[in-house]
Simulated assay, not measured.
Amino acid sequence: MIKAFLTSFQVLTSDEISQFESLLVKRHLKKGAFFISEGKFSKEVAFINTGILRSFYTTESGEEMTYCISFPNALMTAYSAFITGMPTIENIQAIADSELLIIQKHDIDKLQESSPNWIRFSKIIAELQYLELEKRLFVFQKDKAKKRYIDLLENQPDYVQQIPLQYLASYLGITPRHLSRLRKEIQY
């Protein structure tokens, strides 16, 4: 799966992909376990082989706000902390048993020094992260919760039912009660 993911960008050679694969370490997270916690330094990137991860922060009042849910075949890290070297203000938690393929930041740095293809690849990933964030912001401001929920059902039908109601509601920007009403209304 990781090989197909990397190949899809059409930037890396097969040798570079093999080199990347040799640096990966498999990690299993049980449902509820953390990939990274607030206050820690982000020094690794995970490729989600199986499972679901959520990114969230805790408000001053103690409420958890889920702002990102990531599914298999995606990269995941506390991105701003990874870039800045500062402690993260977010948490990344498995909401289903997950298998991750982990690469360390120092290995990514070495890869980038070894070939301009890795710099191009990193640029593409950064651009995709920006576009995804912008899309989420626009959709959140433009679309109603019902449309956001339907889009999620259409794009991730196998996984939506695995996401606990309170996390899904937070991600959609609605209350769990409102989400329950939407679920009854939309018999998908």
Rank of each mutant, 00 (worst) to 15 (best):
I150E: 06
R148S: 06
I2S: 05
I119N: 14
Q93W: 00
V25K: 09
R148G: 03
E185H: 14
A94P: 08
S170R: 02
M86F: 07
I163S: 04
I2D: 00
K30G: 10
F121G: 04
F56W: 04
I102R: 10
L172H: 09
G173I: 05
L24K: 00
I125C: 08
T77Y: 07
I186F: 08
K30W: 10
A4I: 07
Q19L: 10
Q166H: 15
L12R: 09
L131A: 08
A96Y: 10
R120H: 00
S42K: 01
C68E: 15
Q161S: 15
L133F: 11
K146H: 06
T13A: 12
P157C: 07
L75T: 13
T13I: 08
Y149P: 00
P116I: 02
V160N: 06
T66S: 07
H28E: 12
Q162P: 00
L153M: 10
S42C: 06
A81D: 02
L53N: 04
L165N: 10
E90S: 08
E44D: 11
D151I: 01
L101D: 04
R136F: 07
I124V: 15
I69T: 04
N49R: 12
L131H: 05
T58Q: 14
P176T: 02
E99K: 15
G39N: 05
P72R: 01
Q141W: 10
E16T: 01
Q187A: 15
E132T: 00
V139T: 13
Q129T: 14
I52K: 02
S170W: 05
K40T: 00
D143V: 04
M1G: 03
P72G: 06
Y167C: 14
A81I: 02
K31V: 14
R177M: 09
Q129P: 08
K146S: 10
D15R: 08
L152E: 11
A33T: 12
S115D: 03
I48H: 01
A46V: 00
Y159T: 03
C68L: 12
F121A: 06
S22K: 05
K123A: 14
V45P: 06
Y67I: 10
Y188W: 09
G51S: 02
A46T: 02
P176Y: 00
E113A: 13
T50A: 04
C68A: 11
K31E: 15
R148T: 14
K135Q: 03
I124Q: 11
K31W: 01
P176N: 08
E44C: 09
S70I: 07
Q104N: 14
A78R: 00
D109C: 12
L29Y: 11
L29F: 09
G173H: 06
Q141N: 01
N73D: 12
T50P: 07
Q141M: 10
F5P: 03
L100P: 10
T88E: 04
P87N: 02
K26E: 14
S61T: 06
Q162S: 14
F138E: 00
T66Y: 07
V139A: 02
E64G: 01
P164T: 13
Q187W: 13
I150H: 07
L101M: 15
S70R: 06
P164V: 05
